[in-house]
Amino acid sequence: MTAGPSNATVDEGYNFAFLDEQTKRMLRRAILKAVAIPGHQIPFGSREMPLSYGWGTGGIQITAAVIGPADTLKVIDQGADDTTNAVSIRSFFRRMTGVATTERTPDATIVQTRHRIPETKLVEGQILVYQVPIPEPLRWLEPRESETRKMHALAEYGAMHVKLFEDIVRFGRIETAYDYPVMVNGRYLMRPSPIPKFDNPKMDQMPALQLFGAGREKRIYAVPPYTAVKSLDFEDYPFQIEKWDQPCALCGADDTFLDEIITDDKGGRMFVCSDTDHCEQRRAAGHRGTGAPQSYVAAVEGGE
C-alpha cells in the first residue's frame, strides 16, 4: 500500500512542504515549547494556508514543520484514509514534498488525523498530528481568552468539573461523548480535539509524540511520549468508554470504535470499524465478521 516517493508530481514552484524555512523554524520553536510544557497551549503565527481554516490548517502547518524527505505520511479523517479531506491533504503533501504516503499505520512515521486515533498501537518514533478546531477546554464557560489564560496559569479548573457535574444532574451520566477533557501530566487541562472519548485512553502513556495544531485559533500544544493523560471524572462516576453490542461486521473486532452504516431504507444497518486500515489488516490476517447483508454488497458493488 505504500506509495514510493514520486518526485515527478512535486510542485517545483514552492519550498519543500510549502512553508518557507523561516516559518518552519517559528513553528518548530512553538512545537518544542509545547513539548516542554505538556498540554499548555502555545500561541503561534499561524499562516494563511491554501486550505481553508477549520479544515486542518493547524495540523497541516505542524506536519509541514516536522516532515522531511525520508518520512512516510498517513492522513486520516474519521479513521479512514479515503475520506475526501484526508485525500485532499495527502495529495497536498505529495505535491509539496514528494514524500512517500501510506495507509498502513505501522509504516507511517507521521500520521495526521482528524477525529480519531488509529486502533493499531503507535510506537516510539512515530508522530501523531491532530487537527484541532477549538483548543480551549474552558471556552464553554469563559469566552474571554485573557481570562482562560489566567485560569490555566493558576490551574483554576474547578469550573470544568462543574460541567461534568451538570451532565450528571441532567442526564444521570457524563454525557460528553467526544472532545472529552483531559488533564495532561497532572497540570494542564487539555482538549483532545473531537476524537471520541473511546480514544482517550490511547493518549495516556502513548510511546509516540502527539502534536496538536489549531490553525484558525493559532495555538499548538503537545503530549510528549509516555506522558500521563487522564480523562476527568468523579470517583462515583468514573470515566467509561462506549461499547457496542456487536463486533465489526467485516473483521469481527470487538475492541474498536464502530461506525454505523445504513444498509437499506428499511432500517437495516451494520457496524464496521471506523479505522479502515486496521479493519483491512485484520481481514488480511484472516479475521472475519458476520459480513454485510447481501443486498448491500450487491448495491455497493453494482454502483462502482
Binding site: 474547578g158 469550573a159 462543574v162 457535574f165 450528571i168 470517583e235
Partner: peptide, 18 residues
C-alpha cells in the same frame, strides 16, 4: 444548577465525589 453552584468551590478545592 443550584447544586452545581454550591459545589463549584468544593470542586475547585479538589472534591471529586458526585
Amino acid at each position: 444548577s443550584a447544586g452545581g453552584n454550591v459545589g463549584e468551590r468544593l470542586m475547585a478545592l479538589g472534591q471529586r465525589h458526585y
